[in-house]
Computed example of a mutant assay.
Amino acid sequence: MPLVMIVTRDVADRYRGYLGSIMLEVAPAVYISPRMSQGVRSRTWTVLSHWHQTEPSGSVVMVWRDANATGGIGIATLGTPPRELVDVDGLWLVKKPLSPDL
């Protein structure tokens, strides 16, 4: 059961209450759980995703250890443009989509 970290920005107060009930808030809007199972992580993300669909404001980022992902880190995002880790010649980079303005 790996460490899970969730960071929120400009979200409704219910996110803080919910996440604070299942995780430790180590800094404002930064939550960690040292031993969260994949099932609990999945259910937590389902709740956050549903809330974000009904009230799309702010952003949420969840990271966890994933041996099958690039760099061994799984990333899930809501709100801001999604990001993903990519391996470019052995260097890990964060990729985000180009804005339509460019």
Rank of each mutant, 00 (worst) to 15 (best):
W92N: 09
P34T: 02
H52M: 04
V47E: 02
I75D: 02
S49G: 09
V63A: 01
G71C: 01
I75N: 06
S99W: 13
A76E: 04
H50W: 14
T77F: 00
G72A: 03
N68M: 11
V30H: 03
L93G: 09
T46M: 06
I32N: 00
E25G: 07
G39N: 11
S57D: 13
D89I: 08
I22T: 08
Y31P: 00
T70F: 15
V86Q: 14
A69C: 12
R9G: 04
W92G: 07
S59W: 01
T70Q: 15
E25D: 04
G39P: 03
R41L: 08
E84F: 07
V40P: 03
D89L: 13
Q53P: 02
S99M: 12
V61M: 06
N68G: 14
V61T: 09
A12H: 12
G90N: 02
D66P: 10
R16Y: 09
V26A: 09
M5Q: 14
L48S: 05
V47D: 01
R65W: 10
V4P: 00
L3I: 13
D10M: 08
V11F: 01
I22S: 07
A27P: 02
L78Y: 02
T70R: 15
A27G: 06
P56I: 06
P34W: 01
S33T: 07
Q53C: 11
T44Q: 06
D10A: 11
S99D: 13
S21N: 11
L24M: 10
L24S: 12
D10K: 09
R35F: 06
T44D: 04
G90K: 03
V11R: 00
R65F: 12
V47Y: 03
S99F: 13
T54Y: 12
G58Q: 05
S49N: 07
V26I: 10
T8Y: 00
T80W: 13
Q53T: 08
Q53R: 14
T8R: 00
L91G: 07
V40M: 12
L78K: 01
W64G: 04
H52N: 03
G17D: 08
D87C: 11
T46K: 10
I73N: 05
V94Y: 05
Y15I: 02
D87E: 14
G17T: 10
P100R: 10
D13M: 14
P2N: 09
L48G: 06
P82L: 14
M5G: 11
E55Q: 14
P28G: 08
D13K: 14
V40A: 12
L102R: 08
P28C: 07
V47F: 05
S42V: 09
V94P: 00
R9E: 02
A29P: 04
I6V: 04
L48F: 11
V61L: 04
A12W: 03
G72I: 00
N68L: 13
V61Y: 03
L85G: 08
K95C: 10
R16D: 06
V26C: 07
T77L: 00
I22D: 04
M36W: 03
G90H: 04
D101A: 15
D101C: 15
M1L: 09
L93C: 15
S49D: 05
S59T: 04
V94S: 06
L19M: 03
D66A: 13
A67D: 14
L3Y: 13
R16N: 11
R43L: 07
P100N: 10
D89E: 14
P34E: 03
T46S: 09
R65E: 13
H52V: 02
G79L: 00
A12Y: 06
